[in-house]
Design a protein around this nucleic acid. Structure first.
Lengths: 248, 248
DNA sequence: AAAAATCCGGCAGAAACCTGCAAGAATTGC
DNA sequence: GCAATTCTTGCAGGTTTCTGCCGGATTTTT
């Protein structure tokens, strides 16, 4: 059996079953596991499959969600970078939806070991790419608008957790009115998350500072940390310092 | 034997068997391996075959495995098309993961009004794009491998539903051993889905027919309808007709 | 935290490859 | 027709590739 031939066979198997194990392949084509492993590495380098511990999975599985144009992407990347620095190994972390959040999930260091609980479909998808992160998805009805899970059952589930940290993507934030949003169902979810977390981190681009939406998610004292793309000493942030918020 | 003649013979062999070994050819036409090697290099330069270490493979062999992004995409689209025709307005539908399923969800008619319950993150993502479909996501721990929700809580949730229809993306299907898979957690989820559905539709590309994996999802009588890309009358499907399956 | 599985780098033998060479065959030019 | 030239082929040798194995590191699972 030619090497090339063998590799095509492997690709075939992977695409057929979405996943293969080194041991299975080794037995099936009667070569050592080392050889299979080397083949997987080569194929992986060529981008024809994704190698994982113990085998490989098809990459057709991996690229259904595209990283499209996001508004203020650069600012959001800065925020994401700061947000990541707050997370510690072993934490139980809640996350909501929102593009800033997604950006953060995307750049989580691969070495991080933590448990993430999320109501966001895309969030779950991003988190799945990380090898050492356990992902718990809150179930329930999906909101077409917000692309997160909503509804009573979801809230019920959220309340069962006691998270160390919650990351809240915010729609509007103000020193007087706190965090506000314009989708009632979403505010309920965010409230539940806030109440189930020891520490709440609000992520907001500067543009959303001092804006107000129709429905309150939480009062100004509902969160402890605020992260924007601005340096912590920026004058725009002074009012939040005055409210004893931690500014990153 | 003329050089030209010899090379034509090689081409013939390659096209016949899709591959040739230098040693075999050398023995067959009684020339040294070096000569064969030189011939292969020339033929390769002319683009009539692909030289590899140890021999050569035919062009068609190589092309036949050149996939775009999803394996057997065309077949899967055919399957998806057929599957869609089974769904009626108002139904409560279960779906598992798998690329075939995703393909189906992608082409659901925008006019369809139904409720979908899914354990697949990408599935949920696709379904969210449809305006009139209510999407219920089963919560729980996410499997990094299978990219679906797994675990006891998920199974518990699944059992609360009484679906009209379940679409099962299968990994291997056989008239004797039924539907089989190679991930234990996934089989549990699929079993729960089958038990919670009045009618189970198995989606499989023909290539997976009569293949067996390690763990049984359900016996041959566990599902009622089988959809492949083949026309229902195809001889390969006869055994399934004999088992009283509905073949679409 | 221990045990099992997997991975990785290096090693060695075998097989395959390449380069240069020379003898023979075929072709060309006169 | 014959010599010069080119082409082809096999061989020798040194080089590269392939593959299995081993020991230690890393990861996963219990």
């Amino acid at each position: 059996m030619l090497k090339k031939e063998r590799q095509e066979l492997i690709i075939h198997e992977v695409n057929l079953h979405n996943k293969v194990l080194v041991a299975d392949l080794s037995a099936k084509i009667s070569v050592s596991e080392d050889t299979v492993r080397r083949d997987l590495i080569e194929l992986s380098d060529e981008g024809r499959l994704v190698k994982v511990h113990g085998g490989a999975i098809s990459n057709s599985f991996r690229n259904s969600y595209k990283h499209t144009d996001v508004y203020s992407l650069d600012q959001k990347k800065v925020i994401a970078q700061k947000a990541v620095s707050v997370i510690r190994d072993g934490m139980l972390v809640f996350t909501t939806g929102g593009t800033t959040l997604l950006e953060m999930l995307r750049i989580l260091p691969r070495s991080l070991r933590a448990t993430f609980v999320t109501v966001s479909v895309q969030g779950a998808f991003e988190l799945m790419q990380h090898p050492h992160i356990e992902v718990i998805l809150i179930g329930g009805k999906l909101s077409h608008n917000a692309q997160i899970v909503i509804g009573g059952e979801a809230i019920h589930r959220i309340r069962k957790f006691n998270a160390d940290l919650a990351f809240l993507g915010v729609n509007a934030i103000d020193t007087e009115r706190g965090i506000t949003d314009n989708d009632y169902e979403v505010t309920l979810i965010k409230q539940a998350i806030i109440e189930s977390s020891a520490h709440v981190v609000a992520l907001s681009i500067a543009e959303k500072l001092n804006t107000v939406q129709k429905i309150q998610v939480c009062p100004p004292e509902g969160y402890q940390t605020l992260i924007t793309e601005l340096p912590p000493g920026h004058p725009l942030l002074q009012p939040y310092h005055n409210k004893n918020k931690t500014i990153v």
